[in-house]
Amino acid sequence: MNGKDVQSLTAIVVCIIAAACFPFIADGYWMSIGVTAMMYMALATSWALFSGPTHYISLATAAFFGIGGYLVGTGMSDYDLSFWLMMAISAVVATVLAALIGLATLRLSGVYFVIFTLGLAEMIRNLVSWVQNNFLGSRGLYVLTDFTDADIYWMLLTVAAAVYLLGWLINRSRLGFALRIIGNDETVARHVGINTAWSKVLLFMTTGFFAAIVGAIIAPRYSYIEPNLVFKPELSFLVVIMALLGGAHRLWGPIVGVIPFTLLWEAISISFPNYTTLLLGLAFLLIVYFIPRGLIGLIEDLVERSRA
């Protein structure tokens, strides 16, 4: 570990402590926005761990998130199991599912992967609803805990911090270097001795793991869980857009995207509830055409220009 590493670790810790103090100054309204923002920070950062270097666009977030929320709901409601146990189980289930999806699709071209993840949340929602209606009886699932918004916020912050530190470690490891090479040229990567399929599957499993945990933590906030609520495909797209808005090529990029987008989205959802889909589409187009490297990319370009 050199001086620069110590410096950036210190910066990370300071940011985490500052973020942890937020509940002490925020009122109910801002607390609820804080929870939402923290949820997206954890999701977008873990999304970018995989999709940033490899350029494989994953739309599976909602599927893993839904597994977390749904399993917590069904476990606590139907089987009287503890929240923590169900959170652990859902993380394992999502990780295994991610491994299977990865093994089936990540050997092939990126397009197949995107397409497979595109309908995944919807497909799992159909399956879950079917199983619930035919075999379990279609009553609602209640997640009753005594967690406050602040508790949920701190749990999400812990997850986000864990994702960030993991990403920081990966970037310094052989695996991180391998992913950068894969993102540049997968053929070369294989020929220098990188097990490309395994590297990709491993990272994809990580994003599945964290998305399920986030879904599990958020479940108490809904208190009443049904498949339509937790398997919302829109979530996957929001995560992608926030990560890209910030810039997926840097570890801290997604965080830069989450804060403005969450605030903007909150405002839009209240003022123009009927136009959210349209605006989401326009946001995608805006990013692709005008800020392809995200806000960080803009900043980096400005810095470079002022230097030149």
Partner: peptide
């Protein structure tokens, strides 16, 4: 080709949402 693939996927997502938005209205 890889970059075109990523860009066109994202751009057509945008179009898809924009069209849904227009049609819903």
């Amino acid at each position: 080709q890889g970059q075109l693939e990523v860009d066109s996927i994202l751009a057509t997502f945008g179009m898809s949402f924009a069209l849904v938005g227009v049609m819903v209205s």
